[in-house]
Design a protein around this nucleic acid. Structure first.
Lengths: 163, 163
DNA sequence: CGCGCTAGGTTGATGTGTCAACCCCGTCGA
DNA sequence: TCGACGGGGTTGACACATCAACCTAGCGCG
């Protein structure tokens, strides 16, 4: 797909800026979530998914689809969240237990969502402007597709790490 | 700076795509580095900085400037890297010890840099194209500035988390 | 039937990041 | 001279992510 593996100076600079933004933005947002509401970004992600579902209950598997987490990460994290009362694991007739949003979990997400959204707007959407945000979204989708495709093509069996 | 804190659907979609890209790209690159060379992205970052310096030796403080890590993270990580023989902490006349790139560390970075760069090219630069990469770099710088400025203005003393 | 496969889920070990508290030494003002 | 302050650096406790190994129930097939 290319003949020169190296990055030239401009490309390298852009890449490093990207890395820096990723770090800055993540720590900044995470810090607020943590300090103001005692939630990590991981907690937030789970709570958002549950609260956006019709019933407030999903299987771990569905959460995995939505978040793209490893199953072990999901399991560990749900255990921790249950311990803190944000969710509950409930057995049901079907084989696998359901993950249920508790009152407390619902309250938590309702409390922090507006502030979080506002911060995303303040430091991302408003800084870049709508045009660039949408363009970046598109770019992100392209990258995701490329990596996805690569993983699917290059590793027929299940060796997800490839070569 | 804005009157409506919420994100509309398009903005939200773009934001989530960004989050997804961040995750996908990071895990993909990290996995290769780990499996092929036994290096984490953090290791890589330190090694790059050291190897790019004139002398292969820097103070922890300088590494902190370059990477923007917390000092405790730096300390922990350097300790781990020293244990693995990638770097050495060397006392010198000046007050603080210097972090020195070992032979082994230099070999490691030389071994993995080309493959890593190639992967960044394959999944980022080539997917987006030079134009969009540079634009993204600029966007990233804008975001970094905004967050930086906010942290500086909003917290005169040292309460970095703000309120 | 019974054998093994597969897929959802759990567990434990390990490496990593963050926070808060601390140590150490140089500096500066009283 | 001395004490407090501040900044570079370390430490310990804890939350988190990843890997590999495992458990278990449904399924296909002999």
């Amino acid at each position: 797909m290319t003949n020169e593996p190296w990055l030239d100076d401009d490309e390298q600079k852009a890449w490093r800026s990207y890395l820096q933004m990723r770090r800055t933005l993540e720590t900044h947002l995470a810090r607020h979530l943590q300090r103001e509401f005692g939630l990590s970004e991981s907690d937030f992600e789970i709570l958002v998914n549950l609260s956006e579902s019709e019933t407030g209950r999903m299987r771990a598997y569905e959460l995995g689809e939505a978040t793209q987490w490893e199953k072990s990460r999901m399991s560990h994290h749900l255990t921790r969240m249950e311990k803190r009362g944000l969710i509950r694991k409930e057995a049901c007739e079907a084989r696998y237990p359901e993950i249920v949003l508790t009152e407390e979990g619902l309250a938590a997400i309702k409390a922090c969502a507006p502030g979080h959204a506002a911060r995303v707007r303040e430091f991302f959407v408003d800084v870049l402007g709508r045009e660039r945000v949408l363009a970046l979204g598109q770019a992100a989708d392209d990258v995701i597709d490329a990596v996805d495709k690569h993983q699917r093509t290059d590793c027929p069996p299940e060796v997800r790490g490839c070569g």
